[in-house]
Design a protein around this nucleic acid. Structure first.
Length: 236
DNA sequence: AAATCTAACAACCGCCTTACG
DNA sequence: ACGTAAGGCGGTTGTTAGATT
């Protein structure tokens, strides 16, 4: 079995079938898992083709990174993780992947989702607290999206904003303001990281299993999670 | 018990970056 | 140096399960 063979086979298939979208089935997961272990987690387009999954490389990568990766933690964030997210977000803004590297086993997607729901909650509570009849703060706690007029809870603070924004609504109640408030209200609970908190300092929060840069597992370690030979054989 | 709301999670899209020929 | 393809990232939307009314 060589790569060329796989490719030829799959190209034949691809001509027949359309690219699949939507939720992954167990079967697909199994197949993807096996092909990733065969070819590594880099060549996603290739894996997408040879696996016959009729998914895009991007889709395969996302599924692997966010769901199938053996090192993933699932379930609720621990208080420590929550605190770390808050602190790192205050420092870096919406740099989810960067933040995720400091939370072993958590993906950028998980953190993003966590942030979204929890900030929404925060904002709602804040709104209530601010006054039920306040009109002066009507465009309150975040920037309305220009296109939809909806409030985006993503448009947040952080001092190191990248391409994705970092802009503040000139007149609105920016996320920086929210963060100031949150910081103030939680000051007693959280020991804030200093502004020049280095990555090394942040690593303090990371359990030993985390590598300094990534939580990604080493080859040996990941073997522990390899699917059984049986399932690989099923595919080949 | 049914309807509605909310939180959490999964997945896609579009843009940007990077590697490679 | 340039163009292109693939990978990576952030934003957004859809789905579902559990809680509440």
């Amino acid at each position: 079995m060589n790569q060329q063979h796989f490719q030829e086979e799959s190209e034949k298939k691809m001509e027949q079938d359309e690219i699949r979208k939507g939720p992954w089935t167990e079967q697909e997961d199994l197949i993807l898992n096996n092909f990733v272990h065969l070819f590594g987690d880099r060549r996603w387009d290739f894996i997408a083709k040879v696996s016959g999954l009729n998914r895009t490389g991007k889709s395969c990568r996302l599924r692997w990174v966010n769901y199938l990766h053996p090192g993933l933690k699932r379930g609720k964030m621990t208080p420590q993780e929550e605190r770390l997210v808050l602190q790192l977000h205050a420092k870096w803004g919406n740099r989810w992947s960067r933040i995720a590297r400091k939370l072993p086993g958590r993906t950028d997607n998980q953190i993003k989702n966590y942030w979204r729901t929890h900030m929404r909650k925060q904002a709602q509570e804040k709104k209530k607290a601010m006054s039920p009849s306040s009109s002066s703060s009507s465009n309150s706690h975040s920037s309305p999206s220009p296109s939809t007029g909806k409030v985006s809870f993503y448009d947040t603070g952080g001092q190191d904003m990248g391409k994705s924004g970092g802009f503040e609504d000139e007149k609105g109640y920016s996320m920086d303001d929210i963060w100031k408030d949150i910081d103030m209200s939680e000051e007693n609970m959280i020991t804030p990281l200093s502004d020049n908190c280095s990555e090394e300092v942040c690593d303090i929060f990371c359990p030993p299993m985390a590598s300094p840069s990534l939580w990604k597992m080493g080859e040996e370690e990941s073997k522990m999670f390899l699917p059984s030979n049986q399932s690989i054989n099923l595919l080949l």
